[in-house]
């Protein structure tokens, strides 16, 4: 039962959604709308489980005094305190989501800079990866390397100093060879998706069922 019901839901739902695509009639539209209304609801419930998981993991770390356990407080305190400030406390003591507020401060002065920093680390990592891993080991690797250098130069104004041919070649590479390779991979991916979806709908693939699958 635990296994059959979800599989039947997936099968019936999958077939209905597949057929629905070809039917413009109102009945079909209603089915689609009904489905799209359900999706956010399920997501909201799952978020509660997610927050529960996060809390459980960190409480466990604190109780067990696991390595670096004080950091768990840095997760749990803002996780519960910021919503309290944002939704329950009056603006006079820094509540609410307007400016100035604790929520706004945490957002604009903590979250944005931290996220921007994380992303900017890419520049350092790309440099390191380029030095260590980008080798002209074979003829194909050499072509790839030369192409990469042309495209990199074409993407910045300094490339224009070598003459218009460089940015034009860079753009040509992006517009044609890049496109050809991308389409080839995407075709394979598309058929892979099609096969995976069919496997799910017809019960061949059950990994997505979690514990009920096998």
């Amino acid at each position: 039962m635990k296994r059959t019901v979800p599989m039947m839901i997936a099968m019936i739902g999958g077939i209905i959604m597949m057929i629905q695509y070809f039917i413009p009639h109102q009945v079909s539209q209603d089915v689609f709308n009904y489905y799209t209304e359900w999706a956010p609801l399920v997501g909201s419930f799952a978020l509660v489980l997610g927050v529960g998981s996060l809390t459980r993991v960190h409480i466990h770390k604190i109780r067990a005094k696991a390595p670096n356990w004080p950091y768990s407080y840095a997760v749990l305190i803002p996780l519960y305190l910021i919503p309290v400030f944002a939704f329950f406390l009056p603006a006079s003591i820094g509540g609410g989501t307007g400016k100035p507020s604790v929520f706004d401060f945490m957002y604009s002065r903590v979250q944005i800079p931290i996220q921007a920093t994380m992303f900017s680390m890419l520049a350092f990592y790309i440099a390191s990866a380029a030095f260590r891993a980008f080798r002209a080991k074979s003829a194909l690797a050499t072509i790839l390397l030369v192409t990469a250098i042309i495209v990199m130069l074409a993407q910045v104004p300094i490339g224009d100093l070598f003459g218009r041919w460089l940015p034009d070649t860079g753009l040509w590479i992006l517009r044609f060879p890049n496109l050809a390779a991308k389409r080839a991979i995407e075709l394979g991916v598309g058929f892979g998706m099609l096969a995976t979806c069919l496997k799910i709908i017809f019960g061949v693939e059950r990994g997505w069922l979690g514990g009920a699958g096998e």
């Binding site: 799952a46 489980l49 979690g210 009920a212 699958g213």
Partner: peptide
């Protein structure tokens, strides 16, 4: 993703 989390845990 919270939904992925629940499925992964069960799996």
């Amino acid at each position: 993703d919270p939904i992925v989390y629940t499925v992964a845990e069960e799996s």
